[in-house]
Computed example of a mutant assay.
Amino acid sequence: MVRIALLSNPKSTGNRAQLPAIRSFCANHPEIFHYEVEHVDQIEAALRTIARVDPRILVINGGDGTVQATLTELYHSQLFGDAPPPVAVLPNGKTNLIALDLGANGDAIGALQRVLEIAQGSLEEHIVTRELIALSQEDDGVWDGLKPTIGMFLGGAGLAEVMLWCRNKVYPLGLPNWLSHAVTLLALIFSLVLGMRAAFLPERAAPLKVSLIRQGQLQGSFSLLIVTTLRKLLVGSKLAGRPSSAGALQLMIVEQSAIALVCAFVASLFGKLESQLMRGIHVRRGDEIRIEGDRSSVILDGELFHASAGRSIVLRQTAPLPFVRLAA
Rank of each mutant, 00 (worst) to 15 (best):
G236D: 05
K209S: 05
P148D: 11
I226S: 03
M196R: 11
V162Y: 00
S257K: 02
V210G: 07
R231L: 03
R231S: 00
L233W: 05
A246S: 10
L185S: 10
F222G: 06
F222A: 09
A264V: 14
S221R: 05
L261C: 15
S257G: 11
S223V: 05
G151C: 06
A206V: 05
L208W: 02
L225V: 07
G156W: 00
S245I: 08
C263A: 15
N168Y: 10
A264I: 12
R197P: 08
W178Q: 12
S244D: 07
L261W: 15
P202H: 01
L179R: 09
K232H: 14
A157G: 10
W165P: 08
A187Q: 07
A182M: 09
G241A: 03
G220R: 04
R167E: 13
L261Y: 14
L188N: 00
A182S: 13
V266F: 15
T228E: 00
K238I: 03
C166Q: 09
I213V: 15
L251R: 05
A260I: 08
K238Q: 08
R197F: 02
G216K: 08
T228G: 10
E161T: 02
L249I: 03
L154R: 01
F190G: 07
A206Y: 12
W165Y: 09
L164D: 14
R242I: 10
E161Y: 01
V266D: 15
L234K: 05
G158Y: 04
G241I: 06
L159E: 01
I259H: 13
R167K: 15
F190N: 08
L233V: 06
R231A: 03
A260D: 14
M152I: 08
G236Q: 02
S211Q: 11
S237E: 06
G241H: 03
K232E: 05
L251W: 06
R214H: 14
L201A: 07
Q219F: 01
F200E: 09
R167H: 10
A199K: 05
G236L: 01
Y171F: 15
A206D: 14
K209Q: 13
R231P: 00
S191I: 10
A182I: 09
Q250M: 09
G216P: 13
A187P: 02
F222S: 02
A264H: 07
L164P: 09
L224D: 00
A264C: 12
Q250E: 13
P202D: 12
V162W: 00
R231K: 13
L192M: 04
I259T: 15
L164N: 06
L188I: 03
A182L: 12
A160E: 02
I189M: 07
Y171W: 15
A199G: 00
G220P: 10
F190K: 08
A258C: 15
Q215S: 15
Q256V: 04
P172M: 01
F153I: 02
I259W: 14
G155A: 10
V170F: 11
T228R: 07
F200L: 11
S191R: 05
L239Y: 02
L230C: 02
L224E: 02
E203P: 04
V262C: 15
A198V: 03
K147V: 14
Q250I: 01
W178M: 08
P243G: 01
L201I: 03
G174Q: 12
G158W: 00
A206T: 11
A157M: 07
C263I: 13
R167S: 14
R167M: 14
H181S: 11
Q215W: 12
T184I: 04
I189P: 03
R167D: 14
T184W: 09
E255N: 13
V193L: 14
L173Y: 01
A198S: 03
